[in-house]
Design a protein around this nucleic acid. Structure first.
Lengths: 198, 198, 198, 198
DNA sequence: TATGAATGAGTTTTCATTCAT
DNA sequence: TATGAATGAAAACTCATTCAT
């Protein structure tokens, strides 16, 4: 959980800030959980209840809904960027790719629909993170392709699209979700389908 | 679009029904479009506007929101059952499977989230259709597996889970949707990953 | 039940009229029952159901709600005018008065709230009936007073006001209605209170 | 007007409640007025307008219509119970009775129809108040009867029934209401009719 | 600064009235 | 002429957002 602690220039701030900081973190965490459970349309009341604070507190921290969602997304992106960097550091191009791909699939599954409306809004910070992540992803993919480990008949965007594979599992058919097994088998098929010579 | 025209034996029924029938079909079609565009939470007013009728008409037909959603789902299921039957009729087990799988993926993409709440509600008719479709799907999958065309290390439910693959494309990364290409490349990878010996 | 058979100049009307006439009577009777049960705000749908016809039929007969209520009131007034005439024919002034008063009380009890809005609307026919009845009532009351049988410290309007005595029995206290006994004891007290020398 | 100020031991309660308390009282008072004017079917918007608050506030206080009506009735009952207690304290049995009876008649006139649906609903608090009031009323009546001041040929329930006497004045005849005189003359007759030896 | 009561726009729902059949 | 489906205005109700405490 990465809170958006802006800069390091507030040493002399009021001591109250300790409380505030704790609350901010609580709200963000609650928001991630709430979004995961109820989707993008969670009410502020729901988030407030989840965080154990009043609605007003959530509004004080995030006056605009976009800001809150951007924070949630930013939190996810930060984690993904970490993963992508690790992937790029990996000696084996395929291993790196599959590590990243797995991460993307899993995060996506938890944050269905998130970002939809954040394409336009969401602020420059998130946009920058997104650009950064996409750049890393492209590099990981192209490295795997140039090493002959990842099929080349796909644009890197197509690979990214497969990321949503487990987002809504058999939704129309009302298949009961089985996260544990489900994700694994789905990933196996996807990676087999993506591997060069597959 | 399959309207719920009960039986074909009502030539002598009240003439009133002509209008009603037309409207019922219009409402259902509008509901499908509205749900596809605006998600499960479309307002009745939106559906009415889309159908070109008054709100009251939608309410007369579907006093409970669940009933309406069940009808929409039922409509989708009917189409899928048709596809599944065709798939089973196909001489080639793999061809049949890929036909059905493609259909499932595409329908799922259009109806993300639908059915979620219909597991509980939705009525026995929808439940029956669901059971029927799942049975067909299982048969198509097992036939392809027994013919050695579909990898055997997957339960049929896992195959079904892959169905959601294109539901939310690269959602967390806010990749612009490119339906035309997107679906095709995703399907290629999925089918390659699923084919026996993949 | 007195239907509003307008004039006698329709001997050559279409034979369909038999049906219509029957329906008109049914609707009026249903309206009286419906008003008695549900109050002045009964829905046309309720009346139609009670009458066993479609709503449209009720509307054809009474396009305006006032017309329907006026018809119901007219029906009641006709009966009361009959009673008032009998009262005036009675040899004994007190007996006549108490006969009429009893009738008024009982009718009123069944038609609570009726007429409220008909003061303004309701049409000239009802207004005429009302004038006629009030005139008769006044005569009956004044005769009883001049005969020394009815207390003289009351205006005839005050007597009329007592008519509502049983309209809403102990309404605020939610006393279960006991029509049979209730009306009788209430009437006894009222008549005792009204009798000269009471 | 008795607001439901629970106890008098909350001096140290949250200061928030000051506003809320004021609004609660305002809403209840407005509801009484609104019900008196427009009947039991007043819309929540009307009550809100009358109270000078938003609809939401009325809903927050009374999520169910029954609750609101129960509160209104409870308010009336509280007043009547006060009156009944005073009546019982009176030295003169007849004076006490007529005081209470007058109060009942007047309140009833203002709250016609109220309570009807509250027989079933309304909650245990209202039921208890009702029981309490009925008990007091019975006592007042029986005391007046045992003192030979109130006619004995009436059950106490019959006396109560006379309470509705002015609820709907001359309703069927559309007599213009004249509250000032009307109530007085009606009461005179009723009390004369009720007095022992009347 | 945190709280949750208040607000009112927007949605859901009902039902009086019209009108095609 | 009778019917009841369709209509849409108005009532009931929810909930995102504000703001007094």
């Amino acid at each position: 959980m990465h809170t958006d602690q802006p800069a390091a220039a507030q040493e002399t701030a009021t001591p109250l800030r300790v409380d505030a900081q704790r609350n901010a973190a609580r709200v963000l965490a609650a928001a991630r959980r709430a979004v995961a459970h109820h989707g993008l349309d969670v009410s502020y009341h729901e988030i407030a209840r989840e965080a154990g604070v009043g609605v007003g507190t959530v509004y004080r921290r995030y006056p605009e809904r976009d800001q809150l969602m951007a924070a949630v997304l930013g939190d996810v992106l930060t984690e993904l960027i970490d993963t992508a960097n690790q992937a790029l550091d990996s000696d084996d191009a395929w291993e790196g790719f599959s590590l990243l791909f797995t991460g993307l699939v899993l995060r996506t599954a938890q944050n269905t629909g998130l970002s939809g409306s954040l394409d336009q809004h969401g602020g420059p910070a998130v946009a920058e993170q997104r650009r950064q992540l996409l750049d890393l992803v492209r590099k990981v993919i192209e490295r795997a392709q140039s090493h002959g480990r990842l099929r080349r008949d796909l644009a890197w965007q197509d690979v990214l699209r497969l990321t949503g594979a487990v987002a809504v599992q058999g939704c129309v058919l009302g298949l009961e979700a089985d996260p544990a097994r489900g994700h694994q088998s789905v990933l196996t098929v996807l990676l087999d389908g993506l591997r060069a010579g597959g």
